[in-house]
């Protein structure tokens, strides 16, 4: 067996995944706190006010990373769900379902902060334009996946149903991303692009990118913490769970 497949099989073992993720979690939290602390300090105090929007533009430092994360997490959740469906890897199933509440939280933050940013810039909290509506649909998809999983008692069957719903919902991601190009929306077009450069000054852009990286560390730390809990809750009758929890969590 090649080393990659060997690693995948090894991490697929609940006991190994539990120990390995336990080593990663504190580092991920530390990276998040450092990066988010610097990014928020720059965004709220150091970066100058926007010439057109004034200080309200500072909401960008939480709104845009949250909106990006809402799409990324949904993609990761659906792909892990499909991996769980096809190859029956239990850790992938658990990581998929544990992504849903984190994605829902980021989506809610994107919607709420966008609404609060819209009032001083557009003059309204909400309009039913394509970007806002498709992002709201994304929140309902996350809630649907969580609700469906919780409604079915048998974990494998619950995962299969939730993964199917998540896979169908993937169609919403390009709609959200391209909504500002395909339709005339009140929401502005992309300010930052991976390929086409950025319309922002570097002094404003760098803290935004740092906040985006910080959000990914938050997701990683939170996801692993939730997945470890989920594994323990499912395997609480097994000896490894008792040993892991009661005899020191990080010892091999």
């Amino acid at each position: 067996m090649n080393p990659v497949m060997k690693f995948i099989h090894k991490t697929g073992s609940p006991a190994f995944f539990y120990r390995f993720s336990g080593l990663l979690v504190p580092w991920l939290w530390a990276a998040f706190i450092l990066l988010a602390g610097w990014g928020l300090y720059q965004g709220l105090w150091v970066v100058p006010a926007d010439y057109l929007q004034g200080d309200s533009f500072r909401i960008i430092y939480i709104h845009v990373p949250s909106a990006w994360m809402s799409l990324l997490i949904y993609f990761v959740m659906a792909v892990l769900g499909i991996i769980g469906l096809v190859w029956h890897i239990r850790v992938a199933e658990i990581l998929s379902i544990c992504s849903a509440p984190i994605g829902a939280a980021f989506t809610a933050v994107a919607l709420i902060t966008g609404s609060l940013w819209g009032r001083p810039t557009w003059g309204t909290y909400w309009v039913w334009d394509a970007r806002l509506t498709s992002e709201l649909v994304l929140l309902f998809l996350y809630l649907g996946v969580m609700g469906l999983y919780a409604a079915i008692d048998e974990p494998r069957k619950a995962h299969r149903s939730a993964a199917l719903l998540a896979a169908v919902g993937l169609v919403n991601l390009p709609i959200i991303h391209y909504s500002v190009d395909w339709w005339n929306t009140l929401h502005q077009g992309s300010t930052v692009s991976l390929l086409g450069g950025s319309k922002m000054h570097p002094s404003m852009l760098i803290p935004l990118l740092v906040m985006a990286v910080a959000a990914k560390f938050f997701y990683g730390a939170n996801l692993l913490t939730r997945a470890r809990n989920h594994l323990l809750a499912q395997d609480f009758r097994k000896r490894w769970a008792r040993d892991a929890l009661l005899k020191g969590e990080r010892q091999p």
Partner: peptide, 25 residues
């Protein structure tokens, strides 16, 4: 003029992400 909106946005962010981080504990 913009301060209440900024405070509300960052407050909502702290509340939701704080819950998200603490709930697993």
């Amino acid at each position: 003029a913009h301060l209440p909106f900024i405070l509300a946005a960052y407050g909502a962010f702290a509340l939701i992400m704080g819950w998200c981080a603490l709930a697993p504990l």
